[in-house]
């Protein structure tokens, strides 16, 4: 069958489309870089002094894995906006009228997002090192941590593709993203230790997959007694694969049945 070959080819063509667009949208690049840096400064210096994280060298060490996971998850936002924009401008209609793969518009986007997320990672790790974060493990584990985060970004690209296709407008995408994903990232171990939270919220935060991802990153980057392995790395991989499979299935199904 040559259909797999064309799926790969179509995906590459559309990934290239997205990569070409990146340097031509400076406003988007600012959102990807300046905004997370402001979050880091806010948490590190405004709230950080009041947050105790026993076992960690300083709050920056505790914070950085959390804020990076949040930023990566949120980076997908731009994906939802772009997909909604493509629908409104008729581009999705054009793509759907072409004899191309039915998954390529979305998979091309998801693969191109890896480049954006890598850029964001570089910026965030850079600012993290400036504000007092330090790696405490070996190169292999640091790289594994980076792979895990890029995997998370890939999974969330599919989630946001689905949100963009379902909402059909930038405003609705925004509303869905902020009311669902924003609270989920805060009700986790990303910024404070769940043991300080009241009953109910604490259990939720401990079970939250964002906590699992953040703890896995802490283990791979900081290690030691403060960030033990537990089952977090494996569970993170399971979460990433599960989110990717479910979200991509639903997104492609939605794409096929669009009305335009």
């Amino acid at each position: 069958m040559s259909s797999l070959r064309w799926t790969v080819s179509d995906t590459l063509v559309l990934a290239m489309r997205q990569l070409r667009r990146i340097p031509r949208q400076p406003d988007l690049l600012i959102g990807y870089t300046i905004q997370p840096v402001m979050f880091v400064l806010l948490f590190r210096y405004v709230f950080g002094g009041a947050i105790a994280t026993p076992g960690f060298d300083n709050y920056a060490s505790y914070l950085m894995p959390g804020i990076i996971v949040q930023s990566i998850a949120f980076g997908g936002f731009v994906t939802a906006l772009a997909i909604a924009d493509d629908m409104n401008k008729g581009l999705i209609g054009r793509f759907r009228s072409l004899p191309m793969s039915r998954i390529a518009v979305l998979s091309g986007r998801a693969f191109a997002d890896i480049a954006l997320n890598a850029l964001q990672l570089v910026v965030l790790i850079g600012i993290g090192l400036v504000v007092g974060f330090g790696f405490g493990t070996d190169v292999l584990k640091v790289l594994l941590g980076i792979l895990l985060l890029l995997g998370l970004g890939f999974a969330f690209s599919w989630v946001f593709c689905l949100i963009g296709l379902l909402s059909g407008s930038a405003e609705t995408s925004n509303a869905i993203g902020f009311t669902v994903i924003f609270p989920l990232t805060f009700a986790s171990g990303a910024f404070v230790q769940p043991s300080t939270m009241p009953d109910g919220l604490r259990q939720f935060a401990e079970a939250n997959p964002f906590t699992t991802l953040v703890d896995a990153t802490r283990h791979l980057w900081i290690g030691g007694e403060a960030a033990p392995a537990n089952s977090d790395v494996w569970m993170s991989i399971v979460w990433i694969v599960a989110i990717t499979v479910v979200a991509s299935f639903l997104a492609v199904r939605r794409y096929r049945s669009l009305a335009g």
Partner: peptide, 24 residues
């Protein structure tokens, strides 16, 4: 279509080449 369905961040040439590639 009535909505000029071109990618406004791509050049005219890039738009046409992309469509060509997607027609295989």
């Amino acid at each position: 279509g009535q909505y000029a369905a071109v990618d406004e961040y791509l050049t005219g040439k890039e738009n046409l080449e992309m469509v060509g590639r997607l027609y295989h």
